[in-house]
Amino acid sequence: MFTYTLRRAGALIPVLLVVSIVVFSLGWLAPGDPARIVLGPEALEADIQKLRDSMGLNETLWYRYLDWISDALRGDLGTSYFLNMPVSTAIGQHFGPTVQLAVLTIIYALVISVPLGTLAARWRGSGFDQGIAGFTLIGLTFPSFVLSLILVIVFSVWLRCLPVAGYRDLFSDPFNGLRYLILPALSLGTIYAALITRTVRASVLDVLKSEYVDAARSRGVSENRLLFAHALRNAGLPIITMIGLSFASLLSGAVVAESIFNIPGIGSLLVNAIERRDYPVLQGVVLFLTLIYLGLNLLVDLLYGIIDPRVRLTGTVAK
């Protein structure tokens, strides 16, 4: 297990190197002089030069990259041009709402998808199964931002039962916090609900075909017990993978939903940074989200290795 962990983690090093170069070049390719952006259009030339020196902008590119990466490794992602705080602090402040939204979305997706997928496998080929297939297709062809706008029209404009946009903290005001998060979670979660439903249906079907299910059936185990106690439990592995991957992609996929619903999360931080040309924040957020994604991905891989020892030997996960 230890060598497996090392090997999986080691494979990430070249990936991280390339990611760091890409993220660094975002700041370097950006138009305009950072010192001039910080000081504003009416700054004196001498002041700008002084700031350029202290920001290290007069050094060679190579040196600046090494400087940036060694800072980043220590958790220092630079200082925002506009927020008057380190980028890492800004990310910390905005991470809470994003995580709340992501957790709520996953819960919604699971509550919908596990029963639906299992039952679709139970009544394979029936009208119910066809209906589920239709639902998953709709869930997958509607881009989440289109879906969220349609949900806003239906629930906030026509039915007037949910707020259009906004955010309340879930812990200090659970009732209103939930009211504000329902629509974002619905619009983001539907695509995952559709995906997980497909995974659940496929893997339950796989298990139902196996011989021990036949054996249990011939012993007289009831069909429902067979489905939930035998099939669903053993179909868990692909489902866990799917949940892990979904959660990881949710954190970055929430960018659009957050800006539609004015949720002060990582996505809003990113969109505001783009509007204000705040490149350190832009770089920091891209790096942070990519790292989170790669980290969670690694975690899923390792979990796989723990649950299924065969994976450790071949080294790759059959997805």
Binding site: P14, V19, L270, I274, L282, T290
Partner: peptide, 24 residues
């Protein structure tokens, strides 16, 4: 292939957003 791996590790929407924001 390592360069491709690195570029693909950044979510597509995030990379597109960052690049267009940078290029203008």
């Amino acid at each position: 292939m390592r360069i491709c791996d690195g570029l693909m590790a950044i979510p597509a929407l995030l990379l597109a957003l960052a690049l267009t924001a940078t290029f203008g």
